[in-house]
Design a protein around this nucleic acid. Structure first.
Lengths: 191, 191
DNA sequence: GTCTATATAATGATAGAC
DNA sequence: GTCTATCATTATATAGAC
């Protein structure tokens, strides 16, 4: 990557994320992070100005990946296929980003203040807009939201205990796809 | 109700829950709760031994209501209609319990340690078992889980901003029902 | 049942040496 | 780039008066 210098910054991000997911954002102190890394708190403060800054850096990392999907989607314009978008999102919540999504989902309230003008959440809102047909009814809005939840929750071994790690993303994607375009209900009078 | 003495205990529960939902469990200090009630911290400690105890009391309250549904469901035995169960659950997440469910959903990680042997969560697990056909495939497991999420998330004005408070529970119920028994997929070969 | 006063420990953060 | 030492603040919790 850019220049060679100790990888402390990345290690901090990694350990912090691990602990945030394990025990929650607020319960995780900088002391704990420092201890697990066998450095001192002051070392952390060299790389990050505040605790929130660590989270922000985590979000910026992933936000770039979301941007790519977002750019692709906007490029499609009117011809955007929502199922394809979901498929791309499914890729996005896999791999190295899994813990981050879980962190976001399980610490909503702790991150609430951070959410204001946070690079990840504003992008996810844009994503919702794209997934949700303009002027969609409430049922569709809720289903769309649940599709995103499905993608994230599907990765959680506690949610699908009998399913292998390999299969979980497939399950999640299937259910998410159903939610964005359910069978037997394309055009419907409702109520 | 039982005996007449100052309603401080209930007021603590109410204010605490409000603050927990507003700003999160960890971010809410006992000082804050006390200040909003215009009492001292020591007063809180008279009614509750610890901060966690306040949460526990909140959970015990709601757990009783869940028990009634659970008892009804077990009474049905084999003839349990899952859609009816969802309908009863829908009732359960309405009314005075709305903020508690939201609190649980948005503070999962903060409550993680409390979750061990916590009266509410163990009951919700039992509920999942009832809702999920024995030996159900992973897709069904995930859908069932999402149905519960739908019931809770549907109440959140931030999730359904254009929908009236009166209509939100109806939307949530509809989507939840779809998830536990989706159309056009009753018996299916799969993979 | 509510108070004042306090104990104790941990937190996020900073200053400045090396 | 990492350290020691320390800061101010806040937290949960307790003892004991009223």
């Amino acid at each position: 990557m850019a220049g060679r210098r100790s990888d402390t910054r990345e290690r901090i991000q990694q350990v912090a994320l691990d602990l945030f997911v394990e025990q929650g954002y607020e319960k995780t102190s900088l002391r704990e992070i420092a201890e697990r890394l066998e450095v001192t708190k002051a070392a952390l403060y060299y790389h990050f100005r505040t605790k929130e800054d660590i989270v922000r850096s985590l979000f910026e990392d992933i936000a770039g990946a979301v941007d790519e999907v977002l750019a692709w989607a906007e490029e499609q314009g009117d011809q955007l296929n929502r199922e394809d978008l979901v498929r791309r999102l499914s890729q996005l919540v896999q791999g190295r980003f899994v813990p981050i999504w879980r962190f976001v989902q399980e610490n909503q309230n702790a991150l609430k203040e951070l959410h204001v003008s946070n690079p990840l959440m504003s992008r996810m809102q844009a994503m919702m807009k794209l997934l949700c047909p303009a002027g969609a009814d409430a049922d569709t809005q809720l289903r769309t939201r649940l599709a995103l939840v499905a993608l994230i929750m599907g990765h959680n071994p506690e949610v699908l205990p009998d399913t292998s790690e390999k299969q979980r993303p497939e399950v999640a994607l299937r259910v998410a796809l159903e939610l964005v375009s359910p069978r037997g209900r394309e055009v419907e009078p409702s109520t």
